[in-house]
Design a protein around this nucleic acid. Structure first.
Lengths: 387, 387
DNA sequence: TTGAAAGCGATACCAC
DNA sequence: GTGGTATCGCTTTCAA
């Protein structure tokens, strides 16, 4: 940076008076009555406000940012505020963040292709998180559509916005190098909500295996020994499906004679019907169906195929949705408890203000089984078993 | 947990003052090979890359934006790209948008408090829309947490980001003046997806009354005359609930003796049970239950209360969710067809490039009834009646 | 083929 | 109390 001969003496005088526009008197766009004094041609800027109020840009900045105490007279302040109001002035976030070096933006990153598969739990979290962030003065935006599948490309796309923090959810691509890109570009906090974090990132972990383990523990203690585990074929879900399957396997390993079998299932009636049709061949007596929606779908198909639930097939879902209680028998479900939106927002705020905090994994999650009719059974199956 | 590539030292801001003065840099003789040194203290900028590659910032800009054809030699281009790669350079979106005047940002505005109530249809649309926008070169972000309830405050918050377009969904606050704020601050397109647009905004309209009307037409043609209409008590939903109720009323007006009655219902089992318990007192013989989820909830409660569905109560939902087909009888539902994410993205792109396009309402939506068991009944009830 | 330099809009330090 | 003005990072014209 060599300002050197700066200044260059170009006061308000000669500079090419009109901005690029010059021509083409923009026709009055608005339908309603046009505001009286529309002096400027482009959007109103701090400069327009200053001109309009007859003060300098510096004064405008002080007044509009509440730093005018003792510096600017009451009368001037009123003038400035009136001018801003009249012109419909709104500060330019990009300019501000360029100057200040921080954007106040918190990116919630989600891969677009898995979003449709998320349920009310996800949606509710995002909404609550955005509200909570707002209280801290940040502005949280959900950024789906991860460019390509390459974690690095995704990270670059996020980094362009210079977010104060990035919260990656579920299947968002995140690798060591991509965390590095973000950190290097000024992002103070990179937090992974759900999956284990990439190197360098903080994590709010929910071990998906735990979910499978809880479900399996319940089924096994109920006397079931041949457990099917639904692994959705839909895009992106395998990221959860496989660990949950592993969790079931791990739990079953302790029971001699126990058998675990993955079951591919698409979220469609015919796929469920097909699986139900060959249920008896599989020799299974229980199924952990990934989540409540798949569980409902499968349970219905089993019943339609004449399979008794829970007699011939105990069914367990996850997420504990209200709708699961509407079927008969009611659906047993693993309820997953993750940190609340408010807690996550608090963490993010802390990490932003203390960027040097060494990456850590925050484990405050748990999984409980809500036992209902669909898994009643052979043996007992205690209620409220937790892990 | 391996810290990967060191990187621990991050921002270390505060470098204010004291320009480089040309010292430092120059590694002590020898070791001329790779310069692994991380010269800059802050995030890498276009300037760092230029220095690192031994060229000017202008050249860097040309190369990295693909405008180097015929201007910059191949060798220089390689040098620049290598430098950018090595430094982990990512352009600063704010600076670029400040200079270029456009941000390429498309804001998808949703009031945070209603988001949790939205189903897979909403989530799927947003995901698809973001992907589609990406193909057009925009970056779509979902901005919930509308500050306060004041449309003007919300508009100001959005306008700070200088988005190229704003798509307001469902219950987002939008008024004439708030559209004006956005337009004034440079937003080319303000589009309302769902509700009728505020003055000055474009609209992709789905007349909620139509949905109620389609449901009612089906029930009436099936011989039902006493129709209950569920109006959810949950936050934000009344914005849809009331128009749908109106639609039912309008359709019923044509049938002498027809009666329409609003039914408050919370999304909880006890609320549904309570309503079911007094079903017979109400003298109703049919219910349009707002959407499939409320319909499922209510239908189950009715059945549990010993009310025959569809005999004593025909039930109609909306959204045509897969889960609705799992209950017995299967749920009759109004399927709503709105323009696809791709179509909306195309419209938004057009409006951004032709900002002077006069506001218009694009009606490409329709509602059809999917007749299933839950509304079978007294009379006939044709299949696939559309509006 | 490359570089110098003028801004885009907002902030904050330092004179007046 | 106010006003100049350097600066953030980047694009782009014009000159060399």
């Amino acid at each position: 940076m060599v300002p050197a001969t700066g200044t260059s003496a170009v006061p308000a005088g000669g500079t090419s008076g009109a901005p690029p526009t010059g021509t083409s008197a923009a026709p009055p766009t608005g339908t309603a009555a046009a505001p009286p004094a529309r002096a400027s041609l482009g959007p109103p800027t701090s400069t327009s406000v200053a001109r309009h109020a007859g003060v300098s840009r510096a004064t405008v900045s002080y007044v509009l940012n509440g730093l005018a105490a003792g510096r600017v007279s009451e009368a001037t302040q009123r003038k400035v505020r009136a001018a801003a109001e009249e012109l419909g002035y709104v500060p330019h976030a990009a300019a501000r963040s360029l100057r200040s070096g921080t954007s106040g933006l918190v990116l919630i990153a989600v891969p677009a292709d898995t979003v449709p598969a998320f349920g009310p739990l996800f949606t509710g979290f995002v909404a609550g998180f955005q509200s909570a962030l707002q209280e801290y003065g940040y502005i949280g935006v959900l950024h789906g559509a991860t460019a390509g599948r390459d974690p690095l490309d995704a990270a670059r796309a996020w980094a362009e916005l210079r977010p104060a923090a990035v919260l990656t959810m579920d299947g968002s691509p995140l690798s060591g190098p991509s965390v590095d890109i973000l950190k290097r570009s000024g992002t103070s906090a990179v937090v992974s909500y759900g999956p284990p974090p990439a190197p360098g990132a903080h994590g709010i972990a929910m071990d998906q295996r735990e979910i499978g383990a809880v479900a399996a523990a319940h089924l096994l203690s109920g006397g079931r020994r041949h457990i099917g585990v639904v692994v959705p074929v839909e895009h992106g879900l395998s990221m959860f499906g496989m660990p949950r399957l592993e969790g079931v396997r791990a739990a079953a390993a302790a029971f001699p004679g126990a058998r675990v079998e993955p079951l591919a299932l698409a979220y469609a009636e015919d796929s469920a019907a097909e699986l139900a049709a060959r249920w008896r061949e599989t020799g299974l007596d229980a199924v952990f169906a990934y989540n409540d929606e798949y569980a409902m779908l499968l349970m219905r198909a089993l019943q339609d195929a004449g399979i008794d639930v829970p007699g011939e097939a105990a069914v367990v879902g996850a997420d504990d949705l209200l709708l699961g209680r509407l079927l008969r028998p009611r659906l047993t479900s693993v309820r997953i408890e993750l940190p609340t939106p408010g807690e996550v927002a608090a963490l993010v705020d802390r990490l932003i203000r203390e960027p040097e905090t060494p990456p850590a994994v925050h484990r405050r999650s748990s999984a409980h089984i809500e036992v209902r009719g669909s898994s009643g059974g052979l043996g007992g199956g205690g209620a409220g078993v937790s892990v």
